[in-house]
Amino acid sequence: MIWKNSEQRWGGVSQLLHWLIVLLILGQGIVGLLMVDMLNSPDKIRIYALHKSFGLTILALALLRLLWRLATGAPRPVPGIPRWQERAAVFTHWLLYALLFTIPLSGWLFNSAAGYPLQWFGLFNLPAIAGKDEALREAAIAAHAWLFWLLVAVALVHAAAAFYHHLFLRDATLARMLPRGWLHTGSADTAPTPPEDSRDA
């Protein structure tokens, strides 16, 4: 497996971070929707603490993925895709990055404005990013919820586009975010990967 991104495919690091973030977001979404209706109890406090810790983990992984993308580049658009679809894909990708940052940060802001301590899995404390403020707390929790639903909508469009390209256009859009050989297409996924030194030249 090639770990760096190439002109044809996402590398192993990008694939791993992508699917790990997807799984964490699915878990966070389910837990987040369920925990708000829980009665106050030690269990609810523990679940909230885990929710915060996993949110911080997503924030860190999103930052790592962005830095890796900036360092290693991104695959070129699949041949034959109309220009408007290229632009829509670029916009969607950067919107997803923005949401992966702003959703955890809005939760961090809510936690700070509420005056709660913030720990990462009980290992260390993180500083507050705002003082205790009831109005700010209400605004942050509202933003947290609305940004989450925006992420759901954008992610569904993103996934639907990937499956449309795979099932109907039969190109490598989805296949190149999976380990080589998992999905077979008759397009760029079968193109040979250029040597490392030629891509870095």
Rank of each mutant, 00 (worst) to 15 (best):
I2F: 09
K4I: 08
K4P: 08
N5T: 11
N5H: 13
S6L: 03
E7N: 04
Q8G: 02
R9V: 11
R9C: 04
W10R: 04
G12R: 14
Q15E: 13
H18P: 00
I21L: 11
L24D: 04
I25D: 02
G27W: 09
G27T: 11
G29L: 07
V31S: 13
L33R: 10
S41Y: 13
K44W: 08
K44Q: 12
I45L: 14
I47A: 05
Y48E: 10
A49V: 07
K52V: 12
G55L: 09
L56C: 09
L56S: 09
R65N: 09
W68T: 09
W68Q: 02
A71K: 10
A71E: 04
G73F: 04
P75C: 06
R76P: 08
R76Q: 12
P79L: 04
P79S: 11
G80F: 01
G80M: 06
I81S: 03
W84H: 02
A88K: 00
A89F: 11
F91V: 15
F91M: 12
W94C: 02
L95Y: 01
L96K: 03
L96R: 00
L99M: 07
L99V: 13
L99P: 14
I103H: 03
P104D: 09
P104G: 10
L109I: 02
S112M: 10
L118A: 14
L118D: 09
Q119N: 13
F121K: 11
F121P: 15
I129W: 00
K132V: 15
D133Q: 07
D133C: 06
A135D: 15
L136S: 01
A143H: 01
H144W: 02
A145M: 05
W146L: 13
L147H: 00
W149M: 06
V152S: 05
V154Y: 10
V157E: 05
Y164S: 12
H165V: 08
F168D: 01
F168S: 08
L169T: 01
R170W: 05
T173Q: 10
A175K: 07
R176F: 03
P179Y: 05
R180M: 05
R180W: 01
H184N: 12
G186A: 08
G186R: 14
S187Y: 07
A188I: 00
D189Y: 08
A191Y: 11
P192Y: 03
P192Q: 03
P194A: 06
R199Q: 14
